[in-house]
Nucleic acid binder design. Structure first.
Lengths: 122, 122
DNA sequence: TAGAAAGATGAACAGTTGTTCATGTAATCA
DNA sequence: TGATTACATGAACAACTGTTCATCTTTCTA
């Protein structure tokens, strides 16, 4: 994601607003923090994954159940569950042949709810 | 985003877990709601936009200032601000030639903070 | 009024992402 | 043990996304 940006196009405001910009620059979080944050939201930024998370908030379910519920293939769901697991949004347990997935913690629902508050009001 | 999914691969759990799956199916929000939610998080899912939002939480700024702050071109920032505005995450006001952008409401910071809580703990 | 400044925008291009298809692995059971 | 079930995964492909470049609009000013 690291890119090589071209020279900055300066305009008069860069001089006029120098103090404000420098103050903000000093208060910005670490690049890595912002990168991780974007990566997290990227995981939430897909309808399939949002539907999986919403479903798992209602009940623990196995891969096949989720596929059936959402009308998608087992493979597609399995790929998405891997992404959700890597982001620590879901956890799983194995019971024989069946692997049950569930939400990792309560943050997930909180983030979904905050997003919902915004979309409902706009 | 609407796709034509292939026939569902059934497995035994579909019968065994029928009641759970049907209950969850009944509690799922509207498809449109989940779509809008994913669209919202998609907007948060980019480092440049996250950096812009974080900067605007500190202070109202014009396009050129943001470009200068982030070391990117005016054009790139302008494109991203359009996306943020369409998602009702930022608003703007014109003062002569200069257009100042700021966060639209307090939800934005709340969503960022919830995300940060998650990334900090994992 | 002509030129410049600040910003917006369309096209193009490379990089990324989500699903499918084929196949692999772990656990169960006849 | 061999077949089957549930799930995982790599490759491939189409669709999408973010930046650049060129150009356009709006506003100010000399």
């Amino acid at each position: 994601m690291a890119r090589d940006y071209p020279p900055i196009e300066k305009c008069d405001t860069v001089v006029i607003h120098k103090d404000v910009v420098n103050r903000v620059k000093g208060k910005m979080p670490q690049e890595e923090t912002l990168y991780d944050l974007a990566e997290l939201f990227k995981v939430f930024g897909d309808t399939t994954r949002i539907r999986i998370l919403w479903a798992l908030d209602e009940s623990e379910m196995c891969v096949c159940d989720i596929a059936n519920l959402l009308g998608m293939t087992q493979s597609a769901i399995s790929h998405q569950l891997r992404i959700l697991k890597q982001a620590d949004l879901v956890k799983n347990r194995r019971d024989g042949k069946v692997v049950y997935y569930s939400l990792d913690d309560e943050h997930v629902k909180q983030i979904l709810d905050k997003g919902l508050t915004h979309t409902n009001e706009k």
